[in-house]
Write a protein that binds this DNA or RNA. Structure first.
Lengths: 128, 128
DNA sequence: ACACTATACAACCATATGGTAATAGAGTCA
DNA sequence: TGACTCTATTACCATATGGTTGTATAGTGT
């Protein structure tokens, strides 16, 4: 395949995945789904964010194909469908663990205790 | 570790990595570095982007620790330092390959020929 | 029908971000 | 020194994005 004829659509998809994951709120929401399917309301309670906000972010995550939506009565149940999510968190957390280990003994200690590592759901500090 | 005391700094770092990667220009620039170290000017020529633009994006990538900078005369040589970059591309491209395979026979065919897959440098279409 | 709950959507605002042009700084060479 | 090259920085603009408020929609139960 010659240069310059590369399907840009593919690159765009890669960008979209990273862009969608590159937001703290969405990452927190995603983490709240990692232990299993959750309704919007549950995610709202877990994360402490506004309902409209959570709904909007879940829509973005669903549009990117990272989570799926299932209507159940008046509720909407979201769950992580793409194993990509878990893999990416494993990789990134693993890399950061090394870096942070050189920067912070405290965080390194926490990491050794199994927190924040890989697919393990991360407890997020609530906003003040 | 109890909930609510989680080091937010770690999450912020994860977010930063994804956010930095969630930009098409930066991904293109990153790809131009995947075959080896490049000067800013070389990246400018490869990507066809403006010099200030490339310099800014390379600064962002360096600040995130994904690439490193080495001064050489008046030139600045950048190279990918974090293997995270290659791993992430492998994972994301692998996942997208499956999805796109169901959506597009054409892209699937290209993928089978080894293009766009994993750490293989991707030829980027030049801007018109 | 009515009230209630759960979710999505639209409008709006403040902020962040990418791209560009102009400029500055630093090294190189004649 | 002076001209030239390469890179970084600043300022600016247009656009995108996240968060919030209010509202609309839809299911549930009385």
């Amino acid at each position: 395949m010659q240069k310059g004829t590369m399907p840009v659509a593919f690159l765009e998809r890669v960008v979209e995945v990273f862009r969608v994951l590159g937001d703290r709120s969405r990452l927190e929401i995603l983490q709240s789904l990692m232990a299993g399917p959750r309704t919007v309301n549950e995610v709202v309670e877990i994360t402490g964010k506004g309902q409209a906000n959570v709904s909007k972010h879940l829509g973005v995550l669903a549009a990117a194909g990272l989570v799926s939506r299932t209507a159940k009565g008046t509720s909407a149940i979201y769950e992580v469908t793409d194993p990509l999510v878990y893999k990416l968190c494993d990789i990134v957390c693993g890399s950061l663990r090394k870096k942070l280990g050189r920067e912070s003994k405290e965080i390194q200690r926490l990491l050794r205790r199994g927190v924040l590592v890989g697919s393990t759901p991360i407890s997020i500090a609530k906003k003040p």
